[in-house]
Amino acid sequence: MDDQNLKELQNMSRSIRQWIIRSLAEAGSGHTGGSLGLSDVFTYLYFKVMKHRPNQPDWEGRDHLILSIGHVAPVFYSTLAHAGYFHLDELLTLRKLGSRLQGHPGKDHGLPGIELSSGSLGQGLSVGVGLAISKRINNNDTCVFVVMGDGELQEGSVWEAAMSASHHKLNRLIAIVDRNGLQIDGKTSDVMEIEPLKQKWESFGWKVLECDGNNFADLETAFDKAISNVVGPVVIIARTIMGKGIPSIENDYRWHGKVPSREQAIEFQKDLEDL
């Protein structure tokens, strides 16, 4: 990736973060920390990796993104809007009555770009397995990306899905774990230890890649390897910083499900200008 390229991605993820803050402050509730932490991953996915057509969301040749952690809807929506699925201004309707931007993604409400209504943890990887099987039957070699949280890995059904993905050798299935080390009650290591994570996935038959999820060069290396893999499913454990971009809230688990006040939002926007 050249400097120009990097600059573009950085500008895009900054704008995605700015709109996350704007939409959450307007909504008055929602999930700030994880959304900011995943902004670089989403930027890289929608602007570098995925084959998709914002003006034709149901295009047959597209890659699928399944958002298993529905609560980071703000980064998902902000990315979709930046990619051109709908107008940026609609982000200000987040969580409001009648909005297409439900608190957790709900397809019924008509927002383009949502593949699956989600919000109950531990289901997205299984859906990804089914989707990957359907693509294989159809000789369609596009990818299925599933975005999961690290706390979510405490759900047992995730491991049922992991077992079935390697059993059926689903090499176009790529899981991304948002490894920020935090969840609502605190550190994952205190709430329920999920380490040794790499070994867990490997023992379930997955190829494991680790990267800095807030570093585009690192994301590039990981996704290049993941997509060229032909053997079986791949998981990218992306180490991220919850609240990334706002120094005063970075790595603070209390910001998992808290939003800035309007005054704080102004401060946060200044932080992001300097990012």
């Binding site: 397995v129 089914g130 099987i133 079935s164």
Partner: peptide
């Protein structure tokens, strides 16, 4: 036919994925 073992929660959500994929 796809064998999914003794894992009903996974099987139902796999079914959802298959349906999303047109099956």
């Amino acid at each position: 036919f796809f064998s999914l073992g003794i894992a009903e929660q996974n099987a139902i959500a796999v079914a959802a994925g298959l349906a999303l994929g047109g099956k």
